[in-house]
């Protein structure tokens, strides 16, 4: 169980403020992508966020563009997980496909504070906060397999390799 500091934001955090459109085709380097994460929402974030930190936000996190870099840049910034009241559909898929854990829970979002240190136990579906232990529903198995593989690309690569090996 790894501890992380909470960065807390409101509703409708959109993909343009997570990773601006002007960078979508010009910045491909992971380190540089991390520098621009959440640039238009909270310029402090990229300077002070530490690996293992956790983003906690309101409803509809990741709404807007389908750009996958919105998930990628958070992963490169070392974000352990995003906890939100709800996620926009494409961001939800992109996060899992990038190996970035997402947790949907109104209760957790309401009870944790900005700057608080919390710890997530994914196998138990529990979060340790200052106010006590809170539970969340784990992702379905089909989806958690993608997360565990580190994203859709490594997951599919392994699947295709197995298929080829069987064919031989």
């Amino acid at each position: 169980m790894k501890k992380g500091k909470v960065w807390k934001y409101g509703d409708n955090v959109n993909t343009d403020v997570i990773f601006p459109g002007k960078y979508t085709y010009s910045i491909l380097d992971p380190k540089e992508m991390a520098v621009h994460a959440l640039e238009d929402l909270d310029p402090e974030f990229s300077q002070k966020a530490m690996p293992g930190d956790i983003i906690v936000a309101g409803k509809n996190f990741g709404c807007g563009s389908s750009r996958e870099q919105a998930a990628t840049c958070l992963r490169y910034a070392g974000i352990q997980a995003v906890i939100a009241k709800s996620f926009a559909r494409i961001f939800f898929r992109n996060a899992i496909n990038q190996g970035l854990p997402v947790i949907q829970s109104e209760e957790i979002v309401e009870s944790v504070e900005k700057g608080e240190e919390i710890a997530i136990d994914f196998s138990k579906g529990q979060i340790k906060t200052q106010k006590g232990i809170l539970s969340f529903s784990p992702l379905p198995e089909s989806v958690s397999g993608i997360l565990e593989a580190g994203g859709l690309i490594p997951y599919t690569k392994a699947k295709l390799e197995k298929k080829r090996a069987r064919a031989k």
Binding site: S66, E68, A71, I90, N94, N97, L152, I153, T156
Partner: peptide
């Protein structure tokens, strides 16, 4: 429907 880049690659 819109999807992400990884999904298109797959």
């Amino acid at each position: 429907a819109g999807i992400g880049r990884s999904e298109v690659a797959v």
